[in-house]
Every structure is written in C-alpha cells, then in structure tokens.
Design a protein around this nucleic acid. Structure first.
Length: 290
DNA sequence: CCCAGTGTCGCCTGTTATAC
DNA sequence: GTATAACAGGCGACACTGGG
C-alpha cells in the first residue's frame, strides 16, 4: 500500500523506491503483487512516467484512508498513558471559529484528563471519518443519510452579507439580483443555502470567484476583495473592531438559517469520554442556543 | 504437565545484476 | 525507466528438550 501510494504520488517507480528507502525492483514487485491479488492493472507504464489506471484511481482513496487510520493508531499508541482518555472531534471551520468554541473551552477546564483533538473539515469528509473510526464525533451542517449514525440538531446559524470598509460600493442597499454585478465571493453554505441562492441569484457557476472554506472567504473579505455571505457568529469580533462591516441586504425569500448537527456512530455503548462529551454538549447547548 | 528456549525447514521479501 | 532471474537473509511454524 505504501508503494502504491508513493507511485501514485510521484508517478515513478524509481523515485518511489528512493523515497521508501528500497530498490526500484522492490517497488515493481510490490505493485505487481497488488495487481496480481486484485486481478487488475493499477498503473499504465509509459516510457518516461507512470499513470494510474481507472482501477487504480478507484483504489487510491481507500488506500489513503487505510494509511491515515494506521497513522492515527500509531499516534494513539505513542501518546497512550499521558491522558486517561482521548476524543477526536471533527468540525466545520465556522463551528470552531464561533461562540460555540466556548463550550469546548469549558469542557477542557472541567475534564483536563481528556486529551482532545479538534479537526477542521467539510461535512462530507467529517462524516466519512466518523464512519472510518478516525473521528469520534462531528459537528456538521450536512447530516449523513446513513442509518448507522446518530444525528442531533444543535443550533442554528444566521448568514449575513459583509465587506471590508476599504471596499466601497455604489449602492448602500444590495439585493439578491445585484450580486451578479458586484464583486461577490461565493461559498456554498450547504443545501438549504444553495437552493435559496439558485432561486434568488442564479446558478453558482455564474460566480467569478468562489472558495470552498470559510477561512479563505474571511481572508478575501478582509483584504477587500469583495462582498460575501458569512456566519453572524464568526464575524462578530471583526465587525466590532471595524475590520468588516455589514452590507444591508434584501431578497424575496429570507436567507435560510444553517443548522449545525452533532453526528456520532449509533452504538449501544460508547467509550466513556465520548458518552460524557455527548451528555455535556447536549446540556451546554441548551444554554448556548437561547 | 506446562512453559520457555533452541534448532530446523520452508517461504517470503528484498537486493544485485542484467535485459528490454 | 521498468521487468526479471538468481541469490541471500529474515521470519514464522513446528518439533524437540530440559527445568520447574
């Protein structure tokens, strides 16, 4: 698997061998064994380079997940003993960079014996990693359809249009129809937003500049590159200190709110730290949400 | 009788040399 | 740059032995 990943990455048997500290023929044999086992060619050998076949392309993400799982296992083994328990939670950028973070902060103070890893990712990726056992739980905006998951709606977030004060617009009030003619920076905020956006503005493909994470969007907005929708909670600080300002906005239908879900595997018994964290979170969220 | 230590055998994996 | 053949070394399975 190591050889497969390396050849897929470097597109060379020789280079892979060098990086893996083995000779080139070892890589050849390893790949051949894998190909023989699967009964499928994984690489197209060309005179100067190597390329993944369609079968190889299918296999690649699975091998990547397995290798990640092994790395995770190694890390857990090495660090075992320093903390009595550990939790790995996947979350959206907008979740960690909002007032919600105070819940994590309080949890850490209350349970210092639990080692915590907060991982930032997109909803789909988080759901996949929970399924693989890489994450214990996740905070996502797109809940998994899989019945093997437990999904609990936690709270709702509001989106608003903002820009840097350094960027001046001709209009003081912006409508959904105006977005196409403005330096609008697009981020897909999940299914309800997408549906609303298509109805109000048009296809997302019409957008000249789009990003796929809230961190990049925020940076672009702060640099005065354009206007964009961001979560109210995420930009509270920036609006207070004047690095960003709200743009008055109107549309036919109001911008849909975004629901954040707690997701974890459906099991009779969870490990104690996860059980405790879920109970703690559900208790704290009552205070947070109101 | 059980268990730990040791020796043997065969298989697997990696290396070197070389062909393509 | 990749594939193949011959070879070497390492490792696991198994059997045997001796001490507690």
């Amino acid at each position: 698997m190591e050889a497969f990943l390396m050849v897929a990455k470097t597109k060379s048997f020789s280079r892979s061998a060098e990086l893996l500290n083995v000779v080139q023929s070892t890589v050849t044999v390893r790949i051949q064994q894998l190909e023989r086992k699967l009964g499928k060619k994984l690489f197209i050998r060309k005179t100067r380079s190597v390329e993944l076949t369609d079968h190889g392309k299918i296999l690649l993400p699975y091998i990547e997940r397995v290798m990640e799982l092994i790395k995770e296992g190694e890390q857990a083994t090495i660090s075992y003993g320093r903390y009595s328990e550990r939790l790995t939670i996947g979350g959206l950028y907008s979740v960690w960079n909002s007032a919600f973070y105070s819940i994590i902060q309080k949890y850490r103070q209350k349970y210092p014996q639990v080692a915590i890893r907060l991982m930032t990712n997109h909803s789909d990726e988080i759901n996949l990693k929970i399924k693989d056992g890489l994450f214990d739980a996740g905070l996502v905006c797109i809940p998994p359809m899989d019945p093997a998951f437990e999904t609990v709606p936690l709270y709702q977030e509001t989106l608003e249009l903002v820009k840097s004060p350094s960027l001046s617009l001709e209009k003081t009030m912006v409508s959904s129809k105006d977005l196409l003619s403005l330096p609008y920076i697009h981020l897909d905020w999940g299914p309800p937003f997408t549906e609303w956006f298509i109805q109000e503005v048009g296809q997302q493909e019409l957008m000249g500049f789009s990003v796929d994470d809230a961190g990049t969007l925020l940076r672009a907005l702060q640099l005065g590159e354009g206007i964009g929708f961001v979560l109210h909670q995420t930009v509270l600080e920036q609006i207070q200190n004047g690095t960003l300002e709200r743009v008055p906005f109107y549309s036919n239908q109001p911008i849909p709110k975004r629901t954040i879900f707690l997701v974890y595997p459906k099991r009779k018994q969870h490990h104690p730290a996860l059980q405790q964290w879920i109970s703690y979170l559900l208790e704290e969220i009552k205070i947070f949400a109101y």
